[in-house]
Amino acid sequence: MREEPARPARIEVRDLKKHFPIQRPLQGGRGRAVKAVDGVSFEVGERETLALVGESGCGKTTTGRTILRLSEPSGGSVRYLRPGEGEPIDLFALPEREMRPLRKELQIVFQDPLASLDPRATAGDAIGEGIAIHRLAHGRGIEERVVELLGRVGLSPEKRERFPHELSGGERQRVAIARALALGPRFLVLDEPVSALDVSVQVQVLNLLEDLQAELGLSYLFIAHDLAVVRYLADRVAVMYCGRIVETGTAEEIFEDARHPYTQALLAAMPKLEPGSSRGSAPLPGEPPSPVDPPGGCPFHPRCPVAEARCREVVPSEARPGPRRGVVCHLAAGSGTS
């Protein structure tokens, strides 16, 4: 267990919203919106990994992209604490011109490096590009830095000549990580970084991410659907459902003492290797609701095994059973089981 991060956090997200308007040009009237992210708050401390988990469509990827302003936010704030500075900066209040120098420190690694890397650029070009653009080195200095970064992610110097299609999936993801590291980041959004990799290679990349965090003091927002991988890497976990966070806690609290029925269902559906172990409960019925037209009350109530009348009518507010623990459920806030 790592110690609690010093306050203020490296990244502090408050009431983040991202709504996509639905275009209905012929119908006039009041425009509706897909509330992909609808009031999300969390912090990520220095050297801390916060995992954002949930089913596809829950808004976890949109959250990661919106924090970095790769997608314009509809509301809320993201405060980023630069190293050596006392006051955090509100990223959403900055004009793009002032945002640009900060982008070096705020990086993202995607699930599929074959899609995110330029197929015509060698590994060396991909890693060196940002160094040149941000003038972090010149001439031979760029080359030296590229070789150093390749070594840092466990690749030999010869790999700088290779194109993405000449590398394996694991090697490509290492190049994508080296490319992000080239700019000296402090905070990384890791969007399903090992989901596309072979099982035997996943742990290599997870261990690499852990080493880099320890050495460079990085903060990670780790977006993942595979809870086994989350349990391995995360310090804290935030569970998202239908655009909102429904439970937060340390990895231990979430995996050993989940309070929200949705978290419990996710854990129950977690594939297990132990022969004879039972999944414990029936699979979660139905599908996640459409964010266009989410159910009233608690959005989880149509699939919830313990929903009561008030769950259909009243939106639950967050209970805080611990200092950094939150549960958004009428029934589960107090007790460990439901």
Partner: peptide, 20 residues
């Protein structure tokens, strides 16, 4: 042995070296 679900909390897994 290298399956993430097999990791005890806080323990590192030994990955298979190399690649397929």
């Amino acid at each position: 042995r290298s399956h993430p679900s097999r990791a005890a909390r806080g323990r590192r897994l030994e990955p298979i070296p190399g690649r397929v």
